[in-house]
């Protein structure tokens, strides 16, 4: 049985739907990558799962269950947050409270959900800081966020997310703000932790390189919709949706193009409103008359794609 099962999820403002009809499911120990460009609705989807949408945004779904618990029940969702579903954010610089020490913040999360004394929370914090690869954890516990580097802060955020042994970790662009070497270390850490703890992981990224390395399955989002959802091999070797195909073509391969050749891109921009028909049709090279009717997410070989021509 899948741990997370979301069907027909919408996020909308009073005027405009921002996330449309998203279906997701995830088993224990599995990694799902939500990939897509800025503004495609990846983060909103994750925030909607946790009921953390900002003011003015509403969510609805036909079904939203986490391990048998209804995520549409706000009280139940709040009890899950931080204990069974944890989240880490893109900006480790600002996601820790600047006026408290790392130790205070880690211990507070544990004691809020698990109760227990300071000593117990502190032991757990020390153990986790060590586990996420922070040297001299005793000293780090007493330090303030501004005394740590970006990489260390992201590790501290991961430790904080793991304090209560969650079943599901949502990582929203966890490595985007870090430089490439630190990025590789953090990704490896996430992989190790996932294997060791049996975590289900939703990794939100705009970096297809990260997705191809981490994902068991990958959902590509475009203009608030999932346009393709399949296992890693299918998405990266034999993508069915023209958008995924175009994205992969845009990745430059070192040495394969002659110097001076411009990099490939997808002409046009993502539509900001809702238009009739397929959202990608204005930028699609294989658009045809059928595309004025919006295609549903159709089952294709080893996955699903939102295109009339995918097979």
């Amino acid at each position: 049985m899948s741990l997370l099962d979301i069907g027909g999820l919408w996020v909308e403002t009073a005027q405009l739907p921002l996330v449309r009809d998203v279906d997701l499911s995830l088993a224990r120990g599995e990694t799902l990558c939500l990939a897509g460009e800025s503004g495609s609705g990846k983060s909103l989807t994750a925030l909607a799962l946790m009921d953390l949408l900002g003011p003015g945004l509403r969510r609805r779904a036909t079904r939203a269950r986490f391990d048998g618990i209804d995520l549409l029940d706000r009280g139940a969702t709040q009890r899950l947050r931080g204990s069974r579903i944890a989240m880490i954010f893109q900006e480790p610089m600002t996601a820790l409270n600047p006026v408290f020490t790392i130790g205070t913040q880690l211990e507070a999360v544990y004691r809020r959900h698990r109760g227990g004394g300071r000593a117990e929370a502190r032991r757990r914090a020390l153990h986790l800081l060590e586990r996420v690869g922070i040297g001299a954890p005793e000293r780090r516990l007493a330090q303030f966020p501004h005394e740590l580097s970006g990489g260390l802060r992201q590790r501290a955020m991961i430790a904080m997310a793991l304090m209560c042994q969650p079943d599901l970790l949502i990582a929203d662009e966890p490595t985007t703000a870090l430089d490439v070497t630190v990025q590789a270390e953090i990704l490896r850490l996430l992989e190790d932790l996932q294997r060791e703890l049996g975590l289900a992981l939703i990794l939100i990224t705009h970096d297809l390189g990260v997705a191809s390395r981490m994902a068991d399955r990958c959902a590509v989002m475009y203009a608030g919709e999932i346009v393709e959802n399949a296992d890693r091999a299918t998405v990266f070797r034999a993508p069915r949706h023209p958008y995924t195909q175009a994205l992969l073509r845009c990745i430059p391969i070192l040495g394969s193009a002659a110097p001076g050749t411009p990099l490939l891109d997808i002409p046009g921009v993502m539509p900001s409103g809702v238009e009739a028909g397929c959202a990608f049709r204005a930028r699609c090279t294989s658009a045809a008359a059928e595309c004025t009717t919006a295609p549903p997410l159709r089952p294709v070989e080893r996955g699903s794609a939102r295109c009339w021509f995918a097979s």
Binding site: L52, Q78, G82, A86, F89, T94, N97, V99, R112, M160
Partner: peptide, 24 residues
């Protein structure tokens, strides 16, 4: 972001106001 992070860690609105924002 730390306020959003605090809700993601399960803090209630009252707790966020008094224990996260007020000390700042």
């Amino acid at each position: 972001d730390y306020v959003l992070a605090a809700s993601a860690h399960g803090s209630s609105a009252l707790r966020i106001m008094l224990a996260e924002i007020l000390p700042n």
